[in-house]
Design a protein around this nucleic acid. Sequence first.
RNA 1: GCCCCCAUCGUCCAGCGGCCUAGGACGCCUGCCUUUCACGCAGGUAACACGGGUUCGAAUCCCGUUGGGGGUGCCA
Length: 469
Amino acid sequence: MTSSGVRVRFAPSPTGYLHIGGARTALFNWLFARRMGGEFVLRIEDTDGERSRPELIDVIFQALEWLGLDWDGTPVHQSERGHLYSAAVDTLLAQGDAYWCACSSEDVKARAEARGGTPGYDSHCRHLGLGPGEGHVVRFAVPDDGVTAFDDLIRGHVSFDNANLEDFVVQRSNGSPMFHLANAVDDADQGITHVIRGEDLINVTPKVLLLRAALGAPGELIFAHLPLIVNEKRQKLSKRRDDVSVGDYIERGYLPEAMVNYLATLGWGPSDGVEIRPLAEIVAMFDIADVGKSGAFFDVKKLQHFNGEYIRALSLPQFVSRSTRWLFDDAPWDPERFDIATFEVLAPLVQERVKLLAEVPDFVDFVFAAEPVIDEESWQKVMVKTPDLAAAVLDHALAGFAECDWTAAGLDAALFSYAETHGVAKGKVQAPVRVAVTGRTVGPPLFESLEVLGRDETIRRLAAARSRV
RNA sequence: GCCCCCAUCGUCCAGCGGCCUAGGACGCCUGCCUUUCACGCAGGUAACACGGGUUCGAAUCCCGUUGGGGGUGCCA
């Protein structure tokens, strides 16, 4: 227990990879804990043996580590705490707060339809005095009247009429606990003080509260339901239809600092309006009560802008080392031809142009690939549309580059003498050379690129292109 | 259907009864810089959902309407 007494938890279920929504929930829990000087613990909610995939647990931990969200203590696995949950179920049963139910899902559904389509369980077995048996579940006996309410740190007073709550299952027919039960037991057992989670869970809160009361959980649990992160259609992010795996963002070359910083602006904003800033400052300014109530769109464009800012803020060595992954794995060239020293020369020019690290290879592939990959659209635009100019410039470059100083300045003078004598814009003059040598109309500054490529290879490519014009 | 939640520029935030002819950021558009692209710089575009109250005064408080979302599982 810390001086503040605050202890929060992030409780992922290993049924999939960590996604953007989970990452944001983890981040806000972490921010709250760090701000309050409390603890941030992890709990793996793997009570559903059917869906849980243990191999994903490490993947989730790795994603959290990547984000820099360090947790306190050792993560708890619900699958290893079965005895606590069955003891709780026994207590509930003994107190008459829960009862055995023999209805199958089909029975419940059929009766609901007969009733007029209102979904939900009808307390059918509540007073039957059934005991354990094949296919029997344990249900919590929700009070018929009264209200269950709580004061949410973000939403204020939220209240539910017990009459609208059905007798929910707390233990499956296979003996495993349902998540509400495990949740209530563990939050009490682990001394959790605040529950910060997505708004999609707001309606299970009364169930947990009822369970806590019945189990005599000590103290009061304080809730804060975060607004959902939504897609362009304003729907909750879904693993199936949306691009939300944190792992995919890692692959594309997003920096964790940028991701965390961006995520912090979803549902919250610093009062001074400065969005891009160190995490430590965000921790210092963060107040859970300032979190907004409405859903926030996950805007990849803005995330990319943040990422570009963070990439440009890197020192050169950092930029180089962070880029290496994309320079070796799946790089569009023969690994043998890659040379880190050569890359380091070009790196400063690349750093200020990319928004994603995964874009880095595209800016240097012309040096490491044996042949430039000609972009057809670029070729059409400068070689086919204005063939006379292209041919003249290429001839001029071929002649000039054979003799000039092989420096950016020397190349500049050799090529642009054409622009001066013929009164053609420099932009028009450099285009054919750029396409001939790099394959594209865009890229790092041309003369620095040629300087690195070397005289022989540059001339070879120029000649090859000239013969095709 | 029922329950719960939400509502400021296209998007994310600021605004917590007068400082708002509503501010910042992303995007988009224009210009400057410039060998392409990018960066940078200077501008511009664009919002308080609607209707009632309360108040001297409302984007800010209350009610309703409309719209949107979430939930409604022996998933979490």
